[in-house]
Design a protein around this nucleic acid. Structure first.
Length: 490
RNA sequence: CGGGAUGUAGCUCAGGUGGUAGAGUACACGUCUGGGGGGCGUGUGGUCGCACGUUCGAAUCGUGUCAUCCCGACCA
């Protein structure tokens, strides 16, 4: 077991923090609530970015970039949007510092006050829609299918590495369409792009659904989401896709002349995932030994560690290992041969376990004699011996197996933790056990609020294709037509 | 913004009743090592958050201040 990693049993949230820091993913910085994403963490984020970016482009989107700063006046144009974000915005009020005349250091130059304050974007709808007004005149200019990779700032009271940080990295897609149907289809399409990516690539099973009124994005008519279940039984929203109706088009006066000659407001969507996905990744697969990475996401998929004493042994192993590395690379396997003499084998084993490398291969003198290697799976912590002959294809298929099994394991855990309840007692008991709780709800925001007050649980989503079923609201006993998923969430 | 706590070595922390700085770990060097974070030895490293006060003398006592953390409030 890793030296200083708190076990999950003992304190799950401390385990999470320890893991993020010790696996060298990220660190707290000198700025409250802001993190330094370290090379290993950033490499994983880059894998996420690369695959998502590919999938966005496959579905016809292009990238662009909009300013970090948003004039305060833009922000107030869409009322619901203001309500949603006003309380967590960083505001730029001055543009200059000067030497402190009364002592050391620098102070804000009060003469350099901005006429209009600038908001550091918490999300970019307003600045983007202000631009779109100038991009669109005719139905021929539509649709606009733009994505941006950016950082945003939300001044949260309580932060946690990756899960909720003051500044975070994300992508935000903002699209404009001629018709309502097309915009809704876009929002749904992107929900599935997210869902497919997270399941296929990150091996995290998700439930796709829509948000209730209370949980809907500020300014949206419908919020689609993917919800994942973490090991400790808490839910995590892993991605959202919003159908924004014409709210932003009206607020920013984005109109076009349609085929029929009429001037109409455009229909909008926005959708995003963030570095929070890193948190989902950690809390879905990892264990008391450290990070567990799905092979498709692992910057290093296979590490080879030599075991030797003396130069001659190392040289003999080098020869074999370098040949294996060449084989692996030919098959597209991301491999690292770690023959640093400055660290010992046992230290390296622990290090790569902590960092989540899916497969570790050890080669020592005994292996050279027998023509074998020791091969260890990070996910199951099992070891076996394989002949060097044909190793690359064995490793390649083992990586595939690991990818599949990680997903299956997570899905089994998720499915085993969806509880169907009919009474309030069952409901609260199920929430305390953790997991999703499927229960009837009368459909009113007030009831949802009351349930939240009493239990800290919220409606995570109403699953897509949710079967209709007669029932009674878990709290009020009023008639209900379907079950919805409740959970305590991150 | 309420309630509680903490600031001492890169990190985690110890330093009753005042007397000039310690441990573990990390790091550096040497050595024995090497199939799961190895042993032994030597060493580097600190304006004790900051300011003022009490005192011959303050990490220690007092006042103020700043910062951070926890609980709550808050959080799409």
């Amino acid at each position: 077991m890793a030296k200083n990693l708190t076990t999950r049993d003992k304190d799950y949230s401390r385990w999470y923090n320890d893991l993020v820091v010790q696996a060298d993913l990220a660190d707290n910085s000198g700025v409250r609530g802001c993190m330094v994403i370290k090379p290993h963490g950033y490499a994983i984020w880059e894998k996420i970015q690369a695959e998502l970016d590919f999938r966005f482009k496959e579905t016809g989107h292009v990238n662009a970039y909009f300013p970090l700063f948003i004039p305060k006046s833009y922000f107030s144009k869409e009322a619901a949007h203001v309500d949603g974000f006003a309380k967590e915005c960083a505001v730029v009020t001055h543009y200059r510092l000067k030497n402190n005349p009364d002592g050391p250091g620098v102070i804000v130059d009060e003469d350099a006050k901005l006429e209009e304050e600038l908001i550091v974007r918490p999300t970019s709808e307003t600045i983007i829609w202000d631009s779109y007004r100038n991009w669109v005149q005719s139905y021929r200019d539509l649709p606009i299918l733009v994505n941006q990779w950016a950082n945003v700032v939300r001044w949260e009271m309580r932060t946690r590495l990756f899960l909720r940080t003051t500044e975070f990295l994300w992508q935000e897609g903002h699209t404009a369409h001629a018709t309502e149907a097309e915009a809704v289809a876009e929002a749904v399409q992107m929900l599935h792009v997210y869902g497919d990516f997270v399941e296929e690539y990150m091996a995290i099973p998700v439930i796709r659904g829509v948000k209730s009124d209370n949980e809907r994005f500020a300014g949206a008519l419908e919020t689609y989401c993917i919800e994942a279940l973490m090991q400790d039984g808490k839910a995590l929203q892993a991605g959202t896709s919003h159908f924004l109706g014409q709210n932003f088009a009206k607020a920013f006066d984005v109109k076009f002349q349609d085929k029929d000659g009429e001037v109409k407001h455009v229909w909008a969507t926005s959708w995003g995932v963030s570095t929070r996905l890193m948190g989902a990744l950690i809390m879905t697969h990892s264990d008391d030994h450290g990070l567990v990475l799905p092979p498709k996401l692992a910057p290093i998929q296979v590490v080879i560690v030599p075991i030797y004493r003396g130069e001659e042994e190392l040289q003999a192993i080098d020869e074999v290992a370098n040949a294996l590395v060449a084989d692996f690379k030919k098959m597209g396997i991301r491999v690292k041969y770690d023959h640093r003499d400055t660290y010992k084998p046992g230290w390296k084993f622990n290090e790569y376990e902590l960092k989540g490398v899916p497969i570790r291969i050890a080669i020592g003198p005994k292996d050279l004699e027998k023509g074998t290697v020791e091969i260890a799976r990070r996910d199951t912590l099992t070891k076996s011996y394989l002949p060097m002959e044909g190793l690359a294809s064995e490793v390649s298929s083992m990586l595939d197996v690991i990818q599949v099994e990680l997903f299956e394991r997570a899905k089994a855990h998720r499915d085993a933790n969806i509880h169907f309840v009919t009474t309030w007692e069952e409901f609260t008991a199920a929430l305390d056990r953790g997991g999703f709780v499927s229960a009837h709800w009368d459909g009113s925001p007030e009831t949802e609020d009351q349930i939240k007050d009493k239990t800290k649980a919220t409606i995570r989503c109403i699953p897509l294709d949710n079967p209709l079923e007669e029932g009674q609201c878990i709290l009020t006993g009023k008639p209900s037509t379907q079950r919805v998923l409740f959970a305590r969430a991150y």
